[in-house]
Deep mutational scan, measured.
Amino acid sequence: MDVFMKGLSKAKEGVVAAAEKTKQGVAEAAGKTKEGVLYVGSKTKEGVVHGVATVAEKTKEQVTNVGGAVVTGVTAVAQKTVEGAGSIAAATGFVKKDQLGKNEEGAPQEGILEDMPVDPDNEAYEMPSEEGYQDYEPEA
């Protein structure tokens, strides 16, 4: 019985440690998101679009440190934060509304985080759909 109880105690310690790591990862992701939003706020009209992409990228980098179902929630929060940063930029006159959601080359930025393969159960990952990809044929 002692062996059984000791095993359960060790398992509990492992769960607590994993929860603490997840909590730490979420806190880091939130900190990076805040950094990115402050970065966007300090940019001029020309830099705002690039700044919004930076927020998304920093958040995406930190999301990889967070495991399990938390990833889905962090990704949703990050996307809403990026959308909010863009709205703030438009409201303050840093950028025109028609410039939001495009990178410096004018290509749409939507789907940055949505296409990231995420499995809350950590069982399997699927690649994003290939609808947006084109076949590449090298020139002879």
Rank of each mutant, 00 (worst) to 15 (best):
A78K: 11
Q109S: 07
T59V: 08
N65I: 07
A53C: 04
A19P: 00
D98L: 15
E61C: 10
V74Y: 03
A89M: 13
E46H: 04
T54F: 14
A78S: 06
D115S: 10
G86K: 15
A27C: 02
A29K: 06
T33V: 14
L8G: 00
G25S: 13
E139I: 08
G106Y: 04
N65D: 02
Q134K: 10
V48L: 07
V95P: 10
E131P: 12
K58C: 01
L113T: 12
P117I: 10
E46L: 00
K10M: 02
V70S: 00
E20G: 04
E83G: 06
L113I: 09
E131N: 06
V82S: 04
D115V: 11
I88G: 03
K45R: 09
V37T: 00
G31Y: 09
V3Y: 04
G67C: 06
E35C: 15
A140C: 15
A30W: 09
K12Y: 11
G51P: 02
D2M: 01
Q134I: 05
E105G: 13
I88W: 06
E104A: 08
K96D: 08
D121S: 09
A19G: 14
G51N: 06
E139K: 11
L100Q: 05
E130F: 09
G93N: 08
D135R: 04
G84M: 14
A91V: 05
G41L: 09
S87C: 10
V66P: 02
K10Y: 10
N65W: 15
A78G: 05
E20I: 15
A56E: 01
A140Y: 08
Q99K: 12
G86Y: 12
K34S: 00
G84R: 09
L8K: 00
T44A: 04
V26A: 05
D115W: 09
D135G: 09
T92R: 02
G68A: 00
Q109V: 15
T44V: 05
N103G: 13
D2R: 04
K12M: 02
Q109E: 14
V49W: 12
A69S: 07
G7Q: 08
K60T: 05
S9P: 00
A29H: 04
A89T: 06
G41S: 08
E110M: 08
V40T: 02
G31I: 09
K43T: 03
V77Q: 02
V3E: 01
D135Q: 15
P117L: 07
T59S: 09
K6N: 08
K60I: 13
N122A: 09
E83D: 08
P108C: 04
V48Q: 00
V49H: 00
K102P: 06
G73I: 10
T72M: 12
D98M: 11
E114C: 06
T54R: 10
V40D: 00
T33Q: 00
A17E: 06
T54V: 14
L100W: 06
V70G: 02
H50V: 03
V63M: 06
K97H: 04
V37Y: 02
E83F: 12
G73W: 15
A11L: 15
A27Q: 12
G47Q: 01
D135Y: 14
V70I: 15
G101A: 11
T33N: 02
K80A: 05
Y125W: 13
G36C: 05
E110Q: 08
A11P: 00
V15A: 02
P128D: 04
G51A: 05
T33L: 13
P117K: 05
G73N: 10
A76W: 03
A89C: 09
V74C: 08
G67E: 02
T64D: 03
G7M: 15
D119A: 02
A107K: 09
V37I: 15
V71N: 02
A85H: 01
E57V: 06
E20S: 06
L38V: 10
I88S: 03
L38G: 08
M116T: 05
G86E: 14
V52G: 01
T81K: 02
Y39R: 00
S87L: 07
A91R: 03
V3P: 00
K80C: 08
S9D: 10
Q62C: 11
I88F: 07
P120D: 13
G41C: 04
P108L: 11
Q134C: 13
E130S: 10
F4A: 02
G132A: 10
E28W: 11
E61F: 09
E83V: 01
Q109L: 12
T75L: 14
L113Y: 08
S9W: 15
Y136S: 13
V71F: 15
S9A: 02
V3K: 03
V52H: 01
E35Q: 07
Y39N: 07
M127P: 05
E126N: 14
A89P: 05
G51F: 03
Q99A: 12
Y125H: 09
A124H: 13
G7Y: 09
T22D: 03
A140D: 09
M1T: 00
E126C: 12
D2P: 02
G7P: 02
P117V: 12
S42T: 06
P108W: 03
P108A: 12
V118A: 04
A140P: 13
V26K: 00
A78D: 01
A107Q: 10
E123P: 03
K80S: 01
G36L: 02
A124G: 12
L113D: 10
E131Y: 12
V70C: 15
P120K: 05
K60F: 03
E123T: 15
T64L: 13
A89N: 04
E104F: 09
D119Q: 14
F4C: 05
H50A: 04
T75S: 07
S9T: 04
A19F: 15
G106Q: 15
K97C: 09
N122H: 05
D119G: 13
Y39W: 07
T81D: 02
T22M: 15
